[in-house]
Design a protein around this nucleic acid. Structure first.
Lengths: 132, 132
DNA sequence: AAGTATATACGAATCCTTTCGTAAATGCAA
DNA sequence: TTGCATTTACGAAAGGATTCGTATATACTT
């Protein structure tokens, strides 16, 4: 069933971001969202989305004149995919080192910090309890 | 003084990893470390390191026949550079979301979890105190 | 029907990274 | 000195991502 989709490239990530927020939509909508962030030609966006459809990253409905594209991969799965790779290549596999850096360098609101603390406590409790 | 060095590529990161561990050393040493991980030609490693020196990522001493290369950028700075970019492009700027995923998906030892909790508590205390 | 606007299709140019073949320089050993 | 091993220098090929020009199709308006 679900099989190996390629890792999205950087430009492809931009498009996925839009689709995750907007849901299934046309090239024009995606293109306009991208244009807010940087200069880019319409056919560039189109081509990219066609390539992504070929790769299996997007699914498209071509029954209407205006094709509707939809992300096949979920945001969470994609983040997970990138994260593993990132931890390995940049932090030599040490997730906790990454976490320390991320917390140190970036702002996190008190609420978010609380949530993270809760998560840690849950992890600690689980690691004491039966693993099986 | 220190100015904008380019973001290292993936292959360049592998070389930097070796140099961060070994300290300043020859192409041969780096090449042998890389060879442990994957098949790669000597001149490939050489060329890459020459390019990196051109870009300013490495510094080299050419007074001896065997040139000695040294990383200009520190591991921590490089991690920070990648992390900002990564949080933006993959996690839409939410560092805490990244932290949650990293903690959830990867193993962290009890000791590491403790360290992270300490850091959070320190951050919480600081955010109450005077920012200035 | 003709003209206009908007859509998709296709191919190619460009740019960057990665790889490596080949040549030239250097040092060492016989 | 001659030959061998090791090193650096250089150029270019190969592969992939990105961009966009141009052609073609489709719908709508007048």
């Amino acid at each position: 069933m679900a099989q190996n989709l390629p890792q999205p490239t950087e430009a492809e990530m931009e498009i996925l971001q839009v689709l995750w927020v907007q849901g299934p939509t046309s090239v024009r909508t995606v293109h306009e969202a991208l244009s807010d962030r940087r200069e880019v030609g319409y056919t560039t966006t189109l081509k990219l989305m066609q390539i992504m459809a070929d790769k299996g990253l997007l699914r498209r409905d071509t029954t209407q004149r205006v094709h509707i594209y939809e992300a096949v991969v979920s945001e969470a799965d994609t983040q997970h995919q990138f994260l593993s790779r990132f931890v390995d290549t940049i932090f030599r596999g040490s997730a906790s080192q990454l976490v320390m850096q991320a917390l140190g360098n970036h702002q996190a609101s008190p609420t978010e910090l609380e949530k993270i603390k809760d998560l840690i406590e849950r992890l600690e409790r689980d690691s004491q309890g039966p693993t099986k």
